[in-house]
């Protein structure tokens, strides 16, 4: 913990600072909303339909009388969860595949990487689309599809790092000391490539948020009542002329969220 604080103090890059600030503010707001939410994001109220911006409703209410600010908080939570799930699946599988292929090489590497290259050629939103078409729509399927779609890019990066680390002195040294392959892979090499991993996780996170928003727009994103920010945006599209306000809240938060993470990733990369 202290080391993290120390790192933040040392890293003077303005990108990093702004990114950290944005991410912290959004994460804190979402965390607080877990315990305290002034209005229910789903309760409809006829009396307070389409209210303007006021102290009681910081972003106004929508045409069903739902408080937009609370809906945005809730949507951010859903978006973050989906992105986290996606990145978790993508990194876990990516690290396993990449580590095995990069460390052992040989025929296994050749075969798996062929398939991987073929998948990598596809843009991730397209891959996710194909997986959704295979598995059907639903929140779990969405996370799974996005997660699988992100495996190729992660495993490619991890494989490259393991391939490079394989012949390094510290690995040879561990080998001479009689460490097992598994131990070398996950105790020796993995911590050494964490910098690369961290920045690709950040990029993956952003891509997941953007891909999810795209899929929501296409109508195969999150299913109600779990409305993500992307879902809110595409719902608000119908009222863009009469009530542009519906779109502004979720839109700005989504942009800030992605911006925060990409700046953070950028800052981490330039520093290390």
């Amino acid at each position: 913990m202290l080391r993290i604080l120390d790192y933040i103090k040392k890293n003077q890059s303005p990108f990093f600072r702004i990114g950290l600030l944005l991410t912290l503010v959004i994460t804190c707001a979402v965390l607080i909303s877990l315990f305290y939410m002034p209005y229910s994001p789903t309760a409809m109220d006829r009396a307070s339909r389409s209210l303007g911006i006021s102290l009681r409703h910081p972003m106004g209410t929508d045409n069903f009388g739902r408080d937009i600010f609370c809906r945005v908080l809730y949507g951010t939570r859903v978006t973050l969860l989906i992105a986290l799930g996606t990145v978790a699946i993508g990194t876990t599988a990516g690290i396993l595949i990449g580590a095995l292929c990069g460390y052992f090489g040989g025929l296994l590497d050749e075969i798996v990487m062929r398939i991987n290259d073929a998948l990598f050629a596809f843009p991730s939103i397209l891959l996710a689309l194909v997986f959704v078409s295979l598995m059907g729509t639903g929140n779990l399927q969405l996370v799974l599809s996005l997660g699988i779609a992100f495996i190729p890019s992660f495993s490619r990066i991890v494989r490259g790092e393991f391939l490079r680390a394989r012949s390094m002195d510290y690995v040879l040294n561990a080998r001479l000391q009689g460490a097992s392959h598994l131990r070398i892979m996950f105790v020796h090499i993995l911590p050494n490539i964490r910098g690369v991993l961290l920045s690709s996780v950040m990029i993956g996170f952003n891509n997941a948020v953007l891909a999810e928003a795209g899929l929501s727009f296409l109508g195969i994103g999150t299913q109600p009542p779990f409305d993500s920010l992307g879902q809110m945006l595409s719902d608000a599209r119908i009222n863009i002329m009469s009530e542009p306000r519906y779109m502004l809240g979720p839109g700005i938060v989504l942009i800030l969220l992605v911006l925060g993470f990409s700046l953070l990733g950028e800052g981490l990369r330039t520093k290390t």
Partner: peptide, 22 residues
């Protein structure tokens, strides 16, 4: 650049089509 990269393409599409179209 940083901001543009953070905007989902369909959102910028909606904004631009509203701006130029409506």
């Amino acid at each position: 650049n940083q901001i543009i990269m953070s905007v989902p393409p369909f959102f910028s599409g909606i904004l631009l089509s509203t701006l130029f179209g409506l």
